[in-house]
Design a binder for these strands. Structure first.
Length: 427
RNA sequence: GUGGAUGUAGCUCAACUGGUCAGAGCACUGGACUGUGGCUCCAGGGGCUGGGGGUUCAAAUCCCCUCAUCCACCCCA
C-alpha cells in the first residue's frame, strides 16, 4: 500500500512563482492608497467567537447558515474562522473603547478569510480580502471617499471595464415599510416565483431581488413592482442623493441597480458592488456600503460605519487575464557566481557589503562551472554577473560582466561598489 | 448542498473500434564546450495512466465507487 500523496486542502492553494508577484503588486497598491488617504492598518485575529458573526453578519445569511468554519476549541468555546472582515473590525472598535476615546477612525486590513463553499474559479475556501472601513462617520462624503479609494486602487492596478453598481437599502426607519410592501406584492404573486424565492420570501424577502430566474425577473419588470428608491425616508433619500452627487463631482460613473442587495444583513443606506464581465459567474471583485446598524447588533448602538472589501484572488485573475504584458518582474541587479570554495567566501563577504549599499543581488552557490552560471544568469534576466574564482582572487578583484552588452571589466572592490551604486537604479 | 464535464511525465498534449515494453514537445540533468551566456547536436532521468474495485485471455481505453479540478446553480470576494 503506497503512501497517499499530501496535497493542499480542498479550496486552498499555494501562491508562488509569477503569481506571487501579482499579489505583492496588489498589496503594494493597497498599502500605498491607505497611506495616502490616512487609513491605518488593523490586524484582527483569524478566528473569533462564533457569536460575533452570528450576531454581526446576521443569523439568516448564507454565510452564517452554511458557510462558516466553526469548531469547538479544547476549552469548549465555539470558534469561527473569520468569513469576512467588517464584524471583527467593529468588535475591535468597541472592545478598545474607541467610541469614547477616539470615535472617528479609518482603518484598512488585508488577509485571509474562510468560507466553506464548493470551490470554483475565483471562489476559494481560504480566500483573501483587503478592506477599508471608516467608523464613526455618518456624512455621505465618507461613502464617496470609500468608493473613491476603491476606484483609485482598481485604476492604479490598470483595471478598466469595471462597472460600479449602486443602491440604497434604506435604514431601520424606512426599510420595514418597504419590506412589507415588497412582501405583500410577492405574496400575491407567489405562484410566479421560483421555489428558491418562495423560501426567501419567508426568511429574507430582500434577497428575492437578487434572483436571476426568468419568472421572477418578469415580476420585477411589472409597473406596479415596488422599487426601494420610492420608499426611502427623507434622510436616506437625501443621503443617497448626496452620494450620487459626490460621485458625479469626481467623474466616477455608476449604475443605479435597485436590485442590488448584499449578502450580509448589516448594510443600511449605501450599498455598492464593483463587477467585471471577464470572470464568469464570480463577477464581483469588490463591494461594500454603509452599516450603521452593525454596532447595535454587537450591543453598542449608534456607531456609524462605511467600508468596502475586495477579493485579491479575483483581482489577480483579472490582472493575469488582461495585464500579461505589464506583469511586474522581480529581477536582482547583480548575479554573484562563485566558481570555487574561495570564491564562495569572497561572495559572502561581498554580500554583506552590497546590503550596505542597498544593491539587490542573488548568490548562486551551485557547484558548477562558469558556463552554467552564465546560462542561469542569462535566463534570470539579470544585467550584471560577478564572477569570483581563483583567477580573481589571485589578482585581488572581481570580474564583472554586462550581459546586455557582453562587455567585461576587472574591478577592485571599491570601484565595483561605486559602479553598482550608480547602476542599481537602472536595474 | 445540486447538476454537468474532465483527470495520462513538473507543464501542454498523443496512444485507430479494449491488443506488443504508454509516446512527443517544452522543462530538467549530463556531455560535445576543463573559466565565458543566448544557437545547435547527442545522451539521460523521470509515469502503479488521480485512487480503489469489477468485466475480460487482455484495460489508459468499458462498468461501479471514491477523490480532485473546472463549469453552472446557489452565494458572494
Amino acid at each position: 500500500m503506497g503512501q497517499q500523496k499530501i496535497t493542499v486542502p480542498k479550496g486552498t492553494k499555494d501562491i508562488l512563482g509569477e503569481e506571487v508577484v501579482w499579489w505583492q503588486k496588489v498589496e503594494e497598491v493597497v498599502r500605498e492608497m491607505a497611506n495616502l488617504f490616512g487609513y491605518q492598518e488593523i490586524r484582527t485575529p483569524i478566528f473569533e467567537q462564533t457569536e460575533l458573526f452570528a450576531r454581526g453578519v446576521g443569523e439568516e445569511t448564507d454565510i452564517v447558515q452554511k458557510e462558516m468554519y466553526t469548531f469547538q476549541d479544547k476549552g469548549g468555546r465555539s470558534i469561527t474562522l473569520r468569513p469576512e472582515g467588517t464584524a471583527p473590525v467593529m468588535r475591535a472598535y468597541i472592545e478598545h473603547g474607541l467610541s469614547v476615546t477616539n470615535p472617528r477612525v479609518k482603518w484598512f486590513y488585508l488577509g485571509p478569510m474562510f468560507r466553506y463553499e464548493r470551490p470554483q474559479a475565483g471562489r476559494m475556501r481560504q480566500f483573501h480580502q483587503f478592506g477599508f472601513e471608516a467608523l464613526g462617520f455618518s456624512r455621505p462624503a465618507v461613502d464617496v471617499e470609500i468608493i473613491l479609494v476603491a476606484y483609485l486602487i482598481y485604476q492604479e492596478l490598470g483595471l478598466s471595464e469595471l462597472t460600479l453598481e449602486l443602491n440604497s437599502l434604506g435604514c431601520e426607519k424606512c426599510r420595514p415599510s418597504y419590506l412589507s410592501k415588497l412582501t405583500k406584492f410577492l405574496e400575491e404573486r407567489k405562484d410566479n416565483l421560483c421555489a428558491n424565492c418562495v423560501r426567501r420570501l419567508e426568511k429574507n424577502p430582500l434577497r428575492v431581488l437578487d434572483c436571476k430566474e426568468e419568472g421572477c425577473q418578469n415580476l420585477f419588470k411589472s409597473p406596479s413592482f415596488p422599487v426601494i428608491e420610492e420608499y426611502l425616508c427623507s434622510d436616506c433619500r437625501n443621503h443617497q442623493f448626496k452620494v450620487e452627487a459626490g460621485l458625479e463631482n469626481l467623474g466616477i460613473s455608476y449604475q443605479i441597480n435597485p436590485f442590488l442587495v448584499r449578502g450580509l444583513d448589516y448594510y443600511t443606506k449605501t450599498a455598492f458592488e464593483v463587477k467585471t464581465g471577464q470572470l464568469g459567474a464570480q463577477d464581483a471583485i469588490g463591494g461594500g456600503g454603509r452599516y450603521d446598524q452593525l454596532s447595535a447588533a454587537l450591543g453598542v448602538p449608534g456607531v456609524a460605519g462605511v467600508g468596502f472589501a475586495a477579493g485579491i484572488e479575483r483581482i489577480v485573475l483579472l490582472l493575469e487575464k488582461t495585464q500579461q504584458e505589464t506583469r511586474p518582474k522581480k529581477v536582482p541587479c547583480l548575479y554573484l557566481s562563485p566558481l570555487d570554495e574561495e570564491g564562495e567566501k569572497q561572495v559572502l563577504r561581498l554580500a554583506r557589503e552590497l546590503t550596505k549599499w542597498r544593491v539587490p543581488f542573488y548568490c548562486d552557490f551551485a557547484d558548477k562551472g562558469l558556463r552554467y552560471h552564465l546560462k542561469k544568469a542569462q535566463k534570470s534576466g539579470v544585467k550584471w554577473v560577478l564572477m569570483v574564482g581563483q583567477e580573481e582572487i589571485e589578482r585581488g578583484g572581481f570580474s564583472l560582466k554586462n550581459l546586455t552588452s557582453g562587455s567585461q571589466v576587472f574591478l577592485q572592490e571599491d570601484e565595483l561598489l561605486r559602479l553598482l551604486q550608480k547602476e542599481k537604479s537602472l536595474c
